[in-house]
Every structure is written in C-alpha cells, then in structure tokens.
Amino acid sequence: MLWLLLLQVWVSCLWLGHGEVVNSFASCPQFFYSNTPPDAAIKPQNPAWICQTLKGERFFATLYDKDRRIPMYSAYKYEPARFSTNHTWTVEPQLIRSNLPKEMQTVQTLERQYNISKAEIMQSQAVNADYEKSGWDRGHLNPNGHHDTPDSRNVTYTLTNIVPMNATLNRKAWRNYEQQTMANKSKDCQTTYVIVGAVPGNSSLPNGRVNVPSHIWSGACCKTKNNTMSAWAAIARNDQNQVDELTLGQLEKRLAKLYGMKKVPLFHSSCP
C-alpha cells in the first residue's frame, strides 16, 4: 500500500507542476522566438505567467496583470486560417487558487461545480460583466483568426487575453492590420512569432475594475523561406482609428518611452 500512496503523491505533484499559471515562461517557451520572452521591463507589480491551456494542450502564453486585470502581452505562433467557430468566454481558475483546474472555465462552471463565488473570481481578473454596457470592445491581443484549428481559436476567448479596446479601432484599423498586413508581411515566412501587448492607461472601465490601455502594439519576428530573418511591428493609440506601422526597433524605442524604461527588447537579439 505504501508504494501506491507514493505513486498517488507523485502523480499529484506532477499534475500540479503542469498547472496553467506558472512561475515563468520556462514552462511554455515555444511561443517565443528562440525560447526568449520579452525583457522584464514590461513585468507588472502583480504578474501572472499563464500557459493558455485547453483540453490538455498549450496554445499560447500570456503575461497577466492581476491588479489592472488586463494582459500585458500575449505571445503565439501565427498560423492563420479562414473558418468560423462557436466560442464561449472563459476565465482562468488558477488565478483564484492554485489547486483549481489548469484549463480555462466559464464563470458559471466555477460557480456550480467548484462552489467558487463570483466575488472570488473577480478579485484577480476581469469577467464579462466588466465589459457589458461599458462602451468598450473586448479586444483580443492574440486574435482567433491567427489560428488554424477550432481549439486554437476557441482558446483565445479567455478574458485573460482581452483588453478594453476602442470599438472603432478594434473593428476597423486594428482588424485590418491583423487580417491584411500580417498576411502580407508573413507570406515568405516559415514560422512567425508574434507578441501583442497593451500599455496600461490612466483610466478604467466604468466600474473602476479594469484598466483601459493607452496603446495597443504588436511585434513579429520570422525566419523566411530563404533562412533569413524578418521583423515588423505596429502600434495604435486606443482612442483613435489609426495604426502606425514601424520597424521592430522603432516599436521598442516607443515602448521604452511609454513604459518609462531605458529599453524594452521584445525578441531574442538575433531578430532584426
């Protein structure tokens, strides 16, 4: 019986070690070019490193700000396709307690199956009620259209991947960048690594719980079919319907000013 008990303890530890909310992105480095996450300059005071998981599979990585209740950035591989899926908005159980399931769940599931109150859920993250009637879109950092399977698309509908975004920007200029510019820029790429982030702003949604970013930004790095490296970037103010296309270096300089840092490197130094 002793060996059986030890086996149960070992399995339990193994399961906990593969939780979605982790201590660093060393648990899911594959979503960053050369396994290198952005510089610590972007790290908020109360961070959560999330390996976004659905059905036991990890699909992208998010650095989440638990105080402002928005993601600082999401990192993923660009693998676009054209089809539609049915989605459900979810939250991250392990932001509530580490012993809860590692896979994203709906608020209703956590309330009914795990006896978690909505107030407990809301302490560490945003919920749908924050966005309803707020006048702001639920803006994806990692957009569903940049993925090629139902699961990889559905997993982007976690509120830990969402920021309040100006509705016109989200539906027009930023969408055009996501759908058209990204496709054109990456047409010669073998693998494209993308990091999309938000610069925290000085205001919040009407209920005061969720920060409204001042800017949305995106950086991409790829190895081309000729085995050369290519990179590009964009940034948009969250109160205008305009996207500025930049070089990666220009974006990093802009972000350094916006974050009040000396430098903000987004990718491994071999990315131009």
Rank of each mutant, 00 (worst) to 15 (best):
T160H: 00
V243P: 08
S98Q: 13
N238M: 08
L251Q: 08
R209A: 14
A81S: 13
C271E: 04
N176P: 01
L95Q: 07
C13M: 15
Y114F: 15
S218R: 10
Y114K: 06
A48S: 12
P143E: 00
K263G: 04
C51N: 04
S134I: 02
S98V: 10
K118H: 09
K262D: 14
A231E: 11
D137S: 10
S204N: 15
D39P: 04
P143F: 03
M229H: 14
K133V: 04
M182W: 02
W89P: 05
I121D: 01
K262N: 14
T36P: 05
V11E: 15
L100H: 09
D130Q: 03
F32W: 07
K66F: 04
K133W: 04
T85M: 12
A129P: 00
Y73I: 01
A61V: 03
E252L: 10
A220Q: 14
W217L: 05
G219P: 10
A234D: 07
V11Y: 15
G139S: 02
G197N: 07
T36Q: 10
A198W: 03
Y259H: 10
I195Y: 00
H268I: 06
M229L: 15
L54W: 06
S214H: 11
H215K: 13
Q179A: 02
R97I: 06
W15Q: 15
P80T: 03
Q125R: 00
